[in-house]
Design a protein around this nucleic acid. Structure first.
Lengths: 257, 257
DNA sequence: AATTGTTTGTGTTGTTCTGACACAATGATA
DNA sequence: TATCATTGTGTCAGAACAACACAAACAATT
């Protein structure tokens, strides 16, 4: 089954294709310039930024639906994708946003249009290699860009809450999920990994202790290459030893009991 | 808005009251006889055990809906309740179970009955003080009882998966949520707390190290009383110092970075 | 009332982990 | 070749941890 590609198909036939009441929103995170980025888009005829979202096809798994939305916005497949929370407040979805969009497009929607109902939303976060992504808008959105997570203003509906919850979840799961692996390119330096940790934890870490502790986990392979070009001493490149990484994550990277 | 109390109202008017496509299931956990228990019920005309579940009223918050289900089965209010996962496989819900129930009740359901549609399910887990709960069945179920988590057989639909995921979540959140506080009575002994930890973690812990570490967290108040009556040395009673407990949980009880 | 069996409370010891710090090595730039 | 910022490595004291021993308490038995 294919997703309808035309706006008009959405408008007139939403309830023909999709599961009612259920939507999903994706917090797509990348790491670039030593900063965490999130993919946002701006709906046509709307002034505010929003998380990319979508609906679940009638015969589709919710995870598959999230992967589909991710692919539509980034072109990426087989990406680390994780549901983290359901947002189920009765007044969270706001049909008036779509209503205005319709009117500005010169369309007169039916009062019981699919988009006007109440939706709960399943939040997913995705971790992607920034360099592999070219964000592009769809026919419903005018812009699709990476935004620094420290420069997010007011988002549509409850999307600020969704984003915050995603970041909180990533922080809590840092020792249990391969977060470094998914956000960094295959080869990376120790200072880059440290900055990633510092950004996620929003906390400064001691460079030398970080180095020692990371090596102690035994999850990194130090390559023979260094990253030249910076104005200073060239740091070694590392990559993850996935077998040991996965094994270590099961215990949690920091033990506990 | 009140929930319909009669089975017939569910059957004939489900889509009048409830949000379509969305259900929820509750993993209600208690601690008794040094073992973790889960509340299960058996649907009328069905041989298998199931988790208590329900639906979301059209204007109701999903959290409120879960609290309502919890209250219906246990009589308890203001309980620690936490969503942990959404189960969204397209074939997970099984209308034929309800169909059989209808037939055995001598009812001829409409083919487009509310219960026959596809449902995703939001999983919630609740932690309750075992002593405060008297499980009782509703008009849809014939039995409602506490079961030891090690003596669970095959449950209805994907409820084994839901239960397993709940237990896994509790284990992962042990250092971040007030799990001891919610599962134990207000006064408890150190050995009881340790057994709770051992049961959740499915791992033996050293009695003396556990004692020392727990005290080091500073989240316990040792009372002047002891628990007499056991055949051996009477252990001290403790209670949680909630202010310090909450504060400690924010960092996570075991640090990490 | 003394003895016994089992459990609880507390302490010790050697090892590992942690946080705070110093210094030498490196690579581009001046 | 000197400079400068950054990276790699090392040290050291204090904290945390695992493994272990022993005394105190309680009820049941004699």
């Amino acid at each position: 089954m294919q997703v309808p590609n035309q706006l008009s198909a959405f408008i007139q036939e939403g309830d023909k294709w999709f599961l009612p009441s259920v939507s999903l929103d994706c917090v797509i995170l990348g790491f670039h310039d030593n900063q965490l980025k999130v993919l946002l888009l701006k709906l046509k005829h709307s002034a505010v930024w929003a998380l990319p979202g979508g609906f679940v096809l009638k015969e589709e798994d919710t995870e598959t639906a999230a992967a589909r939305v991710l692919k539509e916005r980034t072109g990426l497949q087989d990406i680390f994708l994780q549901q983290f929370h359901v947002f189920g407040a009765p007044n969270r979805s706001d049909g008036s946003i779509h209503r205005k969009g319709f009117l500005k497009s010169g369309i007169e929607p039916s009062p019981d249009n699919f988009l006007f109902q109440r939706f709960i939303s399943i939040g997913y976060y995705a971790l992607v290699d920034f360099a592999h992504v070219t964000p592009f808008p769809d026919e419903n959105s005018s812009e699709c860009v990476w935004k620094d997570i420290h420069e997010i203003g007011s988002l549509m509906m409850d999307h600020n809450e969704i984003l915050d919850k995603a970041l909180e979840t990533v922080r809590l799961q840092l020792n249990h999920q391969p977060i470094g692996y998914n956000l960094l390119p295959q080869k990376f330096t120790m200072p880059e990994l440290q900055t990633l940790y510092e950004t996620i934890l929003d906390k400064q870490l001691d460079r030398r202790n970080f180095h020692r502790k990371m090596n102690a986990f035994g999850i990194l392979k130090r390559l023979k290459e260094t990253r030249k070009g910076g104005a200073h001493r060239a740091p070694f490149l590392y990559s993850f030893d996935m077998r040991k990484y996965q094994k270590a994550l099961k215990q949690g990277l920091n033990g506990g009991w």
